[in-house]
Design a protein around this nucleic acid. Structure first.
Lengths: 230, 230
DNA sequence: GGTTCGAGTTATCGGCGATACCTTGATCAA
DNA sequence: TTGATCAAGGTATCGCCGATAACTCGAACC
């Protein structure tokens, strides 16, 4: 089959909604306005996207694609901690460049209604942190580090979005503070400390298959985390 | 005049709206539902609160009052850094106990639409930080510290609200990380470092009247911040 | 060549925020 | 005492919104 050259109705609708969102904020995105801008009638949206939330999910996924592409293209460098730093900055930059999109994704937590795009970004963060842990430079378990980085990164970005005078220094300060707290400055050639070895084992357990049962593995990982926290 | 013993219509409306918000989330708070629950007709809301946003502002202010009371009652201890720690925990606890209220206040940043209650809480934070700075235990300017603490505290709380399994360890870890990064462990009896003296002067300039003109003071404070950042 | 079905239409529903206009009851000067 | 005033709330209604039932049309398929 040849490529689809003509723009599909679905794409037209998503782009119309994205433009309305970027221009007039979330309030400007009504089913009628989107339908009119896309040159279609309202029920077409519902057949294509189910309901309005489905349309918004598609819009955020579409708008987030470029960001994820950039993040994926930039991520694999020699120094995973540097990747972490660049990922933080990219995150903040995306939020300030597309505030309406960003708030839609991270602003209002509704249980079970998390956009897929946000999950993808989180998994990408976990992947980088696993590489940091593999290099023996992570001071805390990967899950803990991911939660902390995610929480602080979104917190800073939302604060900057709502601030009328945006001070980028707050982002870099917080970023360096967080990274300094969860990583070690340099990789020790051979780290013989208890916590480092526990975390190294934890990291590889997380990534490889092993002969332990799920229950055994859960208990072991709990012990490893307790060993690492001393 | 005797005290107002009967509950005013305004109070009845606010309490009805607060109950709807706590029970069914923000979507359950419609003008009609609130009016019906308060035993009143819809236009009464508009005369009392202007529009729906005015009603929501009044509701958040009301719901936030107890929290602010608790925070004010707890705050003034001997150790302002400990006050900071308790303020952080109180903030997170309030968010997890009243998620719908919290999201209404901190979730969706709209320029110029920040609820008054959030401003009050921020000013309270700045007040504590000024006491920390006065004790010579703050490593960064008060405004910077306030921005960082606010951004990370709200970020952690929003993350916990949206997380299905809430790990309180993330909050305490981030809290201690932030506090360790912006404060010194112990107050030196006489801190003779350049940055400490610059920040001590900055802090008192902030709180007292002085003979410098506003322009001179702004320039001086800029210099002090640059001295402190080395 | 009739059938099926995807894709989009017209028409309409109930709920929402908001407002113009009316009613009522308390207050107070003449 | 009475009539004007006005705060407080009610009645009726507007236009917009999300959503859906029921219909139309054209292409694909046997």
């Amino acid at each position: 089959m040849g490529e689809q050259r003509t723009v599909t109705t679905r794409e037209r609708i998503i782009e119309a909604a994205a433009e309305l969102l970027a221009d007039g904020g979330i309030d400007a995105v009504s089913t009628r306005a989107v339908a009119a801008a896309a040159g279609v009638q309202a029920p077409a949206l519902y057949r294509l996207f189910g309901d309005k939330q489905g349309l918004l999910d598609a819009v955020t996924a579409h708008g987030f694609e470029r960001y994820l592409m950039a993040k994926k293209a930039v991520a694999p460098s020699d120094d995973p901690v540097e990747d972490l730093r660049r990922g933080w900055d990219l995150h903040v930059e995306f939020g300030l460049t597309h505030p309406a999109f960003y708030v839609l994704m991270y602003g209002v937590p509704q249980p079970g209604r998390r956009p897929t795009a946000a999950d993808d970004a989180y998994r990408l963060l976990v992947g980088i942190l696993e590489r940091v842990a593999e290099g023996g430079r992570l001071k805390v378990p990967v899950e803990t580090a991911a939660s902390i980085v995610h929480a602080t990164n979104t917190g800073v970005t939302l604060s900057l979005i709502s601030a009328e005078e945006k001070d980028p220094d707050v982002s870099t300060r917080t970023r360096d503070m967080v990274l300094a707290s969860i990583t070690t400055d340099e990789l020790p050639q051979e780290d013989t400390t208890l916590s480092a070895r526990a975390l190294a084992l934890d990291s590889t357990l997380n990534r490889q298959t092993h002969p332990l049962s799920p229950a055994e593995a859960a208990l072991l990982r709990d012990w490893l985390h307790r060993l690492a926290s001393n």
